[in-house]
Nucleic acid binder design. Structure first.
Lengths: 353, 353
DNA sequence: CTGAAAGCGCTTACAG
DNA sequence: CTGAAAGCGCTTACAG
């Protein structure tokens, strides 16, 4: 283990000390750090060595004062504080914001009236852009209020972005399709499906992905195996009972999110149905509950933290663009990669009795 | 709704513009913003008005360059990345760090060997302090490696802080006691208890709180109703079966954390036991699963986000103190308030048959 | 209690 | 490709 630097209890290494050590100007060090500018290879190497030798890490706060990002204020307007994805969005958002030196304002709201108030507060606070996590990401009135004020809006994790808004999201259709293929490849033919809250855009899109998956495998849609849910654990419990408490129950159930899948699993546990031997279950989102329960849930992972980061980065770009060009411009759309998490809650279809 | 400022697409309001507007110097504005310094009431009012009129918000990044916090680097060393509390710790930590302009380095590790490597990396990166979330908060070897390097350590959410480390935590004993009182007041006399992982300090302390609660209610400890768990959902499932699959089952079960409580609940659902009418269940921590499952779980809320914030603030103070005095000094200990979340999983004890 | 000056660590803009 | 100067928005340290 290395010795601590003597100077440690006074302050950190600055760019100037690195410059001195490397025998160049601070500007050259700055250029090396910030990549994208050409520096002669010889100098670059020397600087890099000095950085290592002195254990230099750039002071982000100082950087952002000058680079212009630091004046930017982003609002995050949310309406569903208990949702487990919200923490992760904030986590990614704050991390990115601190990198950019951007400020973040959190604003909570409930119904439509309170959305108006919340938007006013954000406008008064002078935000330069607003990020809308689900379910607000699909709220036309909110988007309209913001847009009318000339404030760029970014919808996070929506399945179908509204016309004028930027968006960071995954392809819900492809995600559901991948999950369905996973089940059909395991030999499942009787697959139950639990829909989500009809007012959320991913609900329909995920269902469409499921249908496509059945189609590809030449499987018919079994109407009575499609049940309406509300994205809640409790609705999963109820849907699970409907699907499992029958003679010809499905060999697999695709719940439109993890919470509902967890509900189904509790019902199955209760009926003494072994998972995955007798029943495969999968969810969607890969929220914390997916790896809490047993067996752990096969699901589609949304990279929420990364999406939170990207949301900040994207809207900051949008804002700077607008400042430069003086007009709103086209919305930015970012599609993130999802991951199929093949865990223990799915397995080969049981043999016919 | 207010009109957007004309200047909005160029930049934010600065302290100087406020000063001009109020007819004072920037220093006076700075003093008003930063509270703790005396300013004549008349001037203060004028400044406050100007701040409001111009909609001024201080630029945190700029502030921290000068105020000295900005050079500080804090490491967060964690070993259990999937734990649901980790996100919240990070959330609070990053938020506070961005306020202070402090930088945060995340470092992940596994077993003891990898802890050594991780500590080396943090030391090389020149961190000025390290925060240890559970379960590393109780790892004597890790603490020792860090302390030997002269780096202040802060243990987060430990039940019993090691000698030389600072700590931010709740009182696990009082929390468990409050929960037990809640149950005994509801008339429960046969209360099952599921212990946590024996290697974590909260395990024993929560158990002691439970014992104290029984004692206060003049209830005997029923040995066969105390079951060992491991803080996992699966261990809760197994413990739940042990406790419920018997003639004289308890009327209430106190699981040492929420994940295990969720496991017990799944077992109860499976056996057709109604909650809370026939069985009360409570957990500990108030992690996301507590409000996901149904019925929602009565539990003890740890203010994790606030604890993450406080951890950064506390260790930054510690570091500045050490820089000033030139020596380590006493560890700082911060006790946060917990909240008893009385939800739907607990109710009056059922009548004797 | 108030202010003018200097400086935090970095980057932008201007020269070469 | 490289550097000297100026400046980001704020606070510290020094005068009054």
């Amino acid at each position: 283990m290395k010795q601590r630097r003597e100077s440690d209890n006074t302050s950190s290494v600055t760019i100037h000390e690195v410059a001195k050590h490397a025998g160049v100007s601070s500007m050259t060090v700055s250029r090396v750090i910030n990549k994208n500018v050409p520096v002669r290879e010889k100098l670059r190497t020397k600087v890099l060595e000095s950085i290592k030798a002195l254990n230099y890490i750039p002071n982000i706060a100082a950087r952002s004062t000058r680079s212009g990002d630091s004046g930017i204020r982003i609002g995050i307007l949310y309406s569903h504080p208990s949702a487990s994805y919200l923490n992760e969005i904030m986590l990614g958002g704050l991390e990115q914001a601190s990198k950019l030196g951007t400020q973040v304002l959190l604003e909570k709201c409930g119904g439509l009236q309170s959305q108006k108030t919340a938007v006013s507060r954000l406008v008064e606070a002078g935000v330069d852009g607003v990020i809308l996590p689900p379910p607000l990401c699909d709220s036309a009135p909110t988007v309209q209020m913001l847009t009318r004020e000339g404030i760029p809006v970014l919808a996070l994790a929506t399945a179908r972005p509204l016309p004028m808004v930027s968006a960071v999201r995954i392809d819900d259709f492809e995600g559901a399709l991948a999950l369905t293929r996973h089940l059909t490849k395991l030999g499942h033919k009787r697959i139950g499906f639990i829909k989500g809250d009809p007012s959320h855009t991913p609900t329909e899109v995920r269902y469409e992905g499921f249908l496509q998956g059945l189609d590809e495998a030449d499987l018919p849609l079994l109407d009575d195996l499609v049940v309406q849910g509300m994205f809640t654990y409790k609705s999963g419990l109820e849907a699970g009972r409907k699907l499992l408490d029958r003679e010809d129950r499905p060999t697999a159930i695709f719940a439109s999110n993890d919470d509902m899948a967890a509900g189904v699993m509790a019902v199955a546990h209760g009926m003494g149905i072994h998972i995955p031997e007798q029943l495969s279950i999968c969810g969607f989102d890969d929220t914390p509950v997916a790896s809490t329960i047993w067996p752990q849930l096969t699901t589609v992972h949304q990279p929420i933290v990364a999406m939170g980061k990207s949301a900040i980065a994207t809207i900051v770009e949008k804002i700077k663009e607008a400042r430069t060009s003086g007009q709103m411009g086209k919305p930015k759309r970012q599609l993130m990669k999802f991951t199929l998490m093949d865990r223990e809650s799915t397995g080969p279809a049981p043999h016919r009795d």
